[in-house]
Design a protein around this nucleic acid. Structure first.
Lengths: 217, 217
DNA sequence: CGCTCAATGTTAACACAATAAACTTTGCAA
DNA sequence: TTGCAAAGTTTATTGTGTTAACATTGAGCG
């Protein structure tokens, strides 16, 4: 391990830049971010970043990855905490609440994650897919379905669980977004995001037809 | 009405600029938009916009308003088409589908609507609130609840309807967003946004506890 | 009619961000 | 030791946001 040499080479500029960018985003908001600032904060010249990133978007892509990984981490943590009550609806809902809380704590990250800047490289798309934490939610729902008496899918995915997971994800995402846009309390001044998310998640789970329904189609 | 004079004054530059901006956004995507381009497209110099807008953000705010109004219009239209089956769940779901379709048709508008650029002026915030079309959804749900046998709220809002509307809105928003990020078919390659939205909306409606439950709290 | 002024455009100028090009330093491997 | 590639630096170009100073126009008023 090399210590910080103040000399010419930074040592690990790439990571330092990603981190600097992340910090800037967090306290300046996801708008108003310049590669120049990131370089300044990392203590290098304005052109240095181009040795490590193709362009600004490339750097932002890496921050985005960081954001997705951060979310993933929190979801993992929530799963860990809820291991003793695996299979319950509470575990599923706890994951949704974690999502919501992440959106609040990391406002800029959350915005960045869903910002569309044209098209993404397929590789990066893949990385994102791995990092969304969808499988964590999926797993919790599979367990829940099993706990409800449904047979566990042995080979591959449980398509019902996949659908429910997608729906719950969308729900949590929508609640988080509306809250950030201050549109949640539009007509109900006392509305709380948590309350709304919990209630709707339960309703969605409750309203989903059990598997034994005739699915002749 | 004055015809287009090629002379010095444009006639209605303000609107022309908003329109130009909207067009640029639509075909270039919501990123990469410059006030310069908008001015060019409107046929005026680069500084002219500053006679009508405080700054870039002010112009974008106006485009955003346009976007919200466009959505509102479509929702109105959907309501009109469904007048004959008012009170049905289908009407409620049709509104959700309209939301989804708008997000697709007006990708850049939709992004712009939810883009966070710091804080908004309260007046503009109000305008946005008026334009979201929430009352349309709310009304459809109130009718639905009445059709289900619930007593119509005579004075003011039906808080249950407000909650359900908020939840359904969040759901539609989430589905639209995930679709735009190509995350809907993450694990289910055949997943269709419409299908997911319809199914989850129904489940949510079905799973919502009827009003007569003991709400001792 | 002709003046004058406010509204609305134009041009010129500045700061600053993205990015490319041409140099410089440095560590490591032959 | 030397020499090359990696990783910085400086410099320069271009484009955008924005302001300031100037120009044109139409409308209201003597």
């Amino acid at each position: 391990m090399k210590e910080k040499a103040r000399c010419y080479h930074h040592g690990n500029l790439r990571d330092a830049l990603i981190l600097a960018a992340a910090e800037l985003l967090e306290d300046s908001g996801s708008f108003a971010f310049s590669i120049t600032d990131a370089a300044r904060r990392a203590g290098v010249s304005n052109a240095a970043p181009y040795r490590h990133f193709r362009d600004k978007e490339d750097l932002l892509d890496n921050v985005r990855d960081l954001a997705f990984m951060g979310l993933h981490e929190r979801l993992e943590e929530t799963r860990g905490v809820n291991l003793d009550r695996a299979g319950t609806a509470e575990t599923v809902i706890a994951l949704g609440l974690t999502y919501l809380q992440y959106a609040r704590d990391k406002k800029a990250f959350f915005s960045l994650m869903w910002e569309d800047r044209g098209q993404m490289h397929p590789e990066r798309q893949n990385l994102r897919h791995k990092s969304t934490g969808f499988e964590i939610l999926l797993n919790a729902i599979e367990n829940h379905l099993v706990a409800l008496g449904e047979q566990r899918e042995l080979s591959g995915l449980n398509p019902r669980a996949v659908r429910i997971a997608t729906q719950l994800w969308a729900l949590a995402h929508g609640v988080a977004t509306l809250e950030q846009n201050q549109l949640l309390d539009l007509f109900d001044k006392a509305a709380q995001a948590e309350q709304i998310l919990i209630e709707s998640s339960r309703a969605l789970l409750a309203g989903t037809a059990p598997k034994d329904m005739s699915d002749h189609k």
